[in-house]
Design a protein around this nucleic acid. Structure first.
Length: 593
RNA sequence: GGCCUCGUAGUUCAAUGGAUAGAAUAGAAGUUUCCUAAACUUUAGAUGCAAGUUCGAUUCUUGCCGAGGCUACCA
């Protein structure tokens, strides 16, 4: 039984004895640094049950606990806060039980499986900074859920179908002169993206020409020939026209090769993939079924809708009048397909930007209306957009921070800083390059993940991402220092594997142990809140605590052998937790830097 | 117009309804004969405005102000 339960039981016991009241639950919190103590009992909430002065009640409980509970060595009461001092022996016992746990903080996998969808780009343009946030969040949440005992399938829906890819295809046909990634040396996704921009340019020119001739702007936007041609292309595609399908396969293939490289550099992966082109038909099937069940209704023009006015929402289209599928159609199909493929799924997480909050609200509602039980367990992991000082990123207008470019630049900055410090003389070029990438990406990933997912991020490319302070490299650096200590400890022949039997803890050691103790509950909280930021903040606190300890306390230079062994073992454990925690964020840690 | 998010030091981020609102960065001042100074220590600086609920509100409710988004037969 853990300490909190013991304390709660004892507090309930003493309150019953002294005040003849049954107390439901007790509120605990870590004692704030400015006060003496380790665990704080908040007395205020008890006032609802116990009549009296909070300070007096605190005093009585404190005196009782000090008497009755071994681990409580002292107490003090400030206003309505009862601060308990917990014995060193308690923290040492805790350390001895976890010191050799390889995956401290992890919960064994249960039967429940969750599918986490992330990334899901359109296949007509390269990935940008917004996708990076998406990928990092999705990957990290998946890892956190695993650590919290869930079986996880990582997946993405590849939006390989639709008007957007037809635009790139059409532009390539018109202006491409048979260019390929091989012939141009461009990454496939970049090449295809260029044609998407080319389409937009041609389209705008046509619209401008038409309005110059006196046509209404809105009408021109609808009737521009190149757009109409793209729309016809989509219909030909849905009809299975071989010429269109072949081109579509070829150009999508280019894009996938490009994406693969970006994912590899970013360090994310997927267990299964879904293609919209495979699932939209299933979606259509369920639209038909929904019509029969009268979940949907048909308008005179043949388009199919779902009436959500009773739920306080609008009517939503699920099939166009020309019979082609819309976004919603394929999402219905995809969800159903996934559960068919993985019957153990008991929930899905969709990592998609908050601009689609409404879409997912509607999607989840429709799936419920269609009668799927698992529809109750869907979660939209909604995150804020990454905006530039100039506003929203728009691929068509070329105002994007490209994912590959940004990663390369972060690596370059890491290299510059590192070269300046010049600590890596013995490293080979490859080793250095690998390290620079680790640090550069660490900075970028931490920068993005430490922020609450809900919040919008304003990214200023002019001001580079920090490498000092509350940053990824700061934490990586601390890890590297710990590894250095461990290497030296090995050379000195210090045995840090034995049971720790020191008599008394240094204040800094105690703080570190308290922080270590919080790791498992941090993982749980991160899982229930789908928030990697909680893990990032936890690791930062741990690292700050360690650096302070490192500064004030001599580790290898300690003369007392048991203390020295303990400090080495403690450093090792802190290093392990840093590595585990950063692993949950998808960030690697170096043995030197 | 309706609906949804978000407003915290100059800037970037924290704070299950709890104590004197924490950090980082930029600013000022220090710490290398000693385990990696990408570090440590000290210093100054913030809850958009107004009510309400509460013993207690950055957190919950309402109104206003400000930023962004959705409200497409685009995805």
């Amino acid at each position: 039984m853990d300490l909190q339960h013991i304390l709660q039981q004892k507090i309930q016991e003493v309150v019953l004895k002294e005040y003849e009241v049954e107390l439901p639950a007790v509120e605990f919190q870590p004692t704030r640094k400015d006060f003496e103590g380790d665990v704080t009992v908040v007395v205020f909430p008890m006032l609802r049950f116990v009549k009296g002065n909070p300070v007096q009640i605190g005093e009585r409980i404190g005196a009782f606990l000090k008497e009755e509970v071994d681990q409580v060595t002292d107490y003090n009461v400030v206003k309505g806060f009862l601060n308990l001092v917990i014995s060193d022996a308690f923290y040492l016992r805790f350390f001895n039980t976890v010191k050799s746990e390889a995956q401290y903080g992890w919960v064994p996998q249960g039967p429940e499986a969750i599918m986490v969808e992330y990334s899901s780009p359109n296949t007509n343009k390269p990935l940008h900074l917004g996708h990076i946030r998406n990928n990092l969040l999705g990957y990290s949440v998946a890892e956190i859920l695993k650590a919290a005992g869930k079986k996880v399938y990582k997946t993405q829906i590849i939006n390989d179908r639709g008007i957007h890819i037809c635009k790139s295809m059409l532009a390539w046909q018109r202006f491409g002169n048979g260019e390929t990634p091989q012939s141009t040396g461009l990454k496939g996704d970049k090449l295809v993206g260029n044609y998407y921009v080319a389409f937009d340019k041609a389209y705008k020119e046509e619209v401008a020409e038409m309005t110059a001739k006196g046509m209404d702007g809105n009408l021109a936007e609808k009737e521009a020939p190149i757009l109409q041609e793209a729309q016809q292309m989509l219909q030909r595609w849905e009809a299975g026209d071989t010429e269109v399908v072949d081109l579509w396969k070829k150009m999508n293939g280019w894009v996938y090769e490009g994406f693969e490289l970006t994912y590899k550099n970013l360090g994310v992966d997927f267990d299964t993939l879904y293609y919209e082109s495979d699932t939209y038909l299933l979606g259509k099937e369920f639209v038909r079924e929904g019509l029969e069940k009268e979940v949907f209704f048909k308008k005179e023009d043949g388009s199919v809708w779902c009436d959500l006015t009773e739920e306080g929402l609008d009517e939503k289209i699920v099939l166009r009048s020309d019979g082609t599928a819309v976004y919603m159609t394929q999402d219905i199909g995809t969800a159903i397909q996934r559960v068919k493929d993985h019957p153990d799924i008991n929930g899905m997480v969709y990592t998609v930007g908050n601009e689609q909050d409404y879409h997912f609200k509607v999607l989840f509602l429709i799936l419920k209306k269609l009668g799927f039980s698992w529809a109750e367990r869907l979660y939209h992991l909604s995150y804020g957009m990454v905006d530039l000082p100039s506003g929203k990123m728009k691929s068509r207008e070329g105002t994007v921070v490209d994912a590959d470019d940004l990663m390369a630049e972060m690596t370059r900055t890491a290299a510059e800083i590192s070269e300046e410090l010049g600590k890596l003389e013995e490293y080979t070029l490859e080793e250095k390059q690998e390290l620079y990438q680790m640090i550069g990406l660490g900075a970028l990933k931490y920068y993005i993940l430490k922020v609450d997912p809900k919040k919008r991020i304003l990214f200023n490319p002019e001001e580079s991402v920090d490498f000092q302070g509350n940053t990824g490299p700061f934490i990586q650096y601390t890890y590297a220092r710990i590894q250095s200590i461990l290497r030296k400890a090995d050379e000195m022949g210090i045995d840090h594997t034995a049971m720790v039997e020191v008599e008394q803890l240094h204040a800094k050691e105690k703080e570190l142990l308290k922080q270590l103790q919080l790791f498992p509950e941090t993982i749980q909280a991160a899982a229930t809140n789908y928030s990697p930021a909680l893990v990032a903040n936890y690791i930062y606190e741990l690292v700050k605590e360690f650096n302070s300890f490192y500064q004030q306390v001599s580790i290898l230079g300690e003369v007392d052998e048991t203390k020295r062994q303990f400090r080495v073992a403690l450093s090792k454990k802190v290093g392990e937790v840093i590595k585990l925690g950063f692993g949950l964020l998808g960030i690697q840690v170096p043995v030197r830097m």
